[in-house]
Design a protein around this nucleic acid. Structure first.
Lengths: 147, 147
DNA sequence: TCCAAAATCATACTAAAGTATGAGCTGAAA
DNA sequence: TTTCAGCTCATACTTTAGTATGATTTTGGA
């Protein structure tokens, strides 16, 4: 509420300024209507300016909810990884698998053969106690092994 | 911008009113300072009132990020479904597929044959523009088609 | 009522996924 | 140095996934 006094003071000085000007030149060189009009315009502007400062306080909160995948600020749950005995390479395969890549695509990305990927994923399924890659991805996400 | 004219008109009428009053009683029964002060106060109020109408337009947008929780507060994005031309049955298959079920398991759950599920999923992949079920699940989650 | 879309299923494929087993290589720990 | 876990790859196989095509039946809406 400190601002109230600030604006009040500003208004006070403006009025003083007007009264001072009244006895100087404005009242002498202009008609009454012009003077009244100037006051009107001036204070309308002051009102708009000052008013906006207060009205801005009455913010209209528009809360827009945005769905965000927990991909950011993700860190692998190393504990679960160790618990299940999942090796580094197996985890690599799991990560790419979770991105929807085929075994062949994973093999290409990791510069290994298709058979190697199959071996890794097979052991992976055993450790995750699942049968299919889709289930593996689900389980891995639940365990915080992949984003 | 229509409101600008409305406020302008209101201001115009106020000025006319003041000029009218000027030749009636106000100017005769009060001193010039009082009259000027009244104009100042009046237009300050008008300014605050009018200005607030515009300022209110400036909404404060607060983006609240909500992490996607697999099960809670999920609702299917019907819009995307329609956009992609995914039928009800195809969506059923998609939902179960996203749960890591095999085609055979999906068939059992929906009381249809394995071939039917294959047909559905095949069309599904086409509509989702993917080749594999793992990619389909990914895309579906991104589009809010499945939890 | 009539029709197009949806749903169902089949056959016959090809492609990919997954399993089982064995083996060679390597680096680190015992 | 030996041992061992992890990584690699191969062969051979079974299972599941996915494609293509065609047919029949439901069904919701003009």
């Amino acid at each position: 509420m400190k601002k109230v006094f600030i604006y009040g003071t500003v208004l006070g000085f403006l009025i003083l300024g007007l009264k001072f000007a009244e006895y100087r030149f404005l009242i002498k060189s202009n008609s009454f209507e012009v003077y009244a009009g100037l006051i009107a315009i001036l204070f309308a502007i002051v009102g708009i300016w000052g008013g906006s400062k207060f009205v801005k306080k009455k913010e209209i909160l528009v809360v827009k909810e945005v769905l965000v995948q927990p991909t950011e600020n993700f860190s692998v749950n190393e504990n679960n990884l160790k618990q299940l005995g999942i090796s580094k390479r197996e985890h690599d395969v799991l990560m790419l698998m979770a991105q929807g890549l085929s075994n062949q695509e994973v093999a290409d990305k990791l510069f290994v053969s298709l058979n190697t990927v199959k071996t890794h994923s097979s052991k992976l399924f055993e450790k995750l106690n699942v049968q299919r890659r889709t289930q593996a991805v689900q389980e891995a996400k639940k365990l915080g092994l992949v984003p």
